[in-house]
Design a protein around this nucleic acid. Structure first.
Lengths: 110, 110
DNA sequence: TTTATATACATAAGAAAACTATGTATATAA
DNA sequence: TTATATACATAGTTTTCTTATGTATATAAA
């Protein structure tokens, strides 16, 4: 959908926030959660999601463990201690960005 | 600054909106306006701005004319008819994006 | 029974859009 | 004369998407 062009740069923040709220999630679950919360307007493609998860893991913000459910492997992610600390920063960054964008575009909240 | 990572995808909308409000602006003026409105938090680099302006012109959304002020050339941009029509679309797109981001990140307006 | 859809992971190739660095040029203040 | 501000532009690089593809299992539909 249309908003996806603007997704750049915010996907990491979305992932970290979802993991702060849910403590552990697997990739597919994240895509479904985003779809659900945005009423299907925002779709996270696998080609965007998995590299982002791997990068966050490589950066030490996420850690993983696997579980087998119905003969299918699920790779769960959760925040590391460092990841937990970074969420607040990323969130206030996002909030500042939204605020500035509203100023520039003269938008008011929906 | 930090919010710049999230700028991706919104620069075109910012340019179009500023030109809707000001009818004509030149590149350098746009960078200063953005800096001013965001209290210096958001900085539009030339490497991002000029290619974006050229693309919008190439897409038929902007048109240009030059003026010489103090022996320096200024290249002014203004919305074409098509550009004028697209501003509203881009703005509602941005508003939807902000709304979805606030839902996902559980943010409230500053 | 075969086919489509959902679940679940992953990566490769390509495009979009930013950043950094560099270049040209004039005006003005230190 | 040197630094800063004004004013344009582009080349090379990096980040981060999209699209396409691949593997594999479970389940519902035809």
């Amino acid at each position: 959908m249309s908003s996806n062009q603007m997704l750049k740069g915010t996907l990491q923040t979305i992932i970290l926030k979802l993991l702060e709220d849910n403590s552990q999630m697997y990739g597919y679950e994240i895509t479904q959660k985003v779809k659900e919360v945005t009423s299907g307007d925002m779709v996270i493609t696998e080609g965007a999601l998995y590299p982002a998860l791997h990068k966050l893991e490589g950066d030490g913000l996420l850690e993983t463990f696997t579980e087998v459910v119905d003969n299918r492997v699920r790779k769960y992610y959760r925040l590391t201690e460092q990841g937990g600390k970074e969420v607040a920063d990323k969130l206030s960054e996002a909030q500042l960005f939204i605020h500035q964008l509203e100023l520039l575009l003269n938008l008011k909240p929906l």
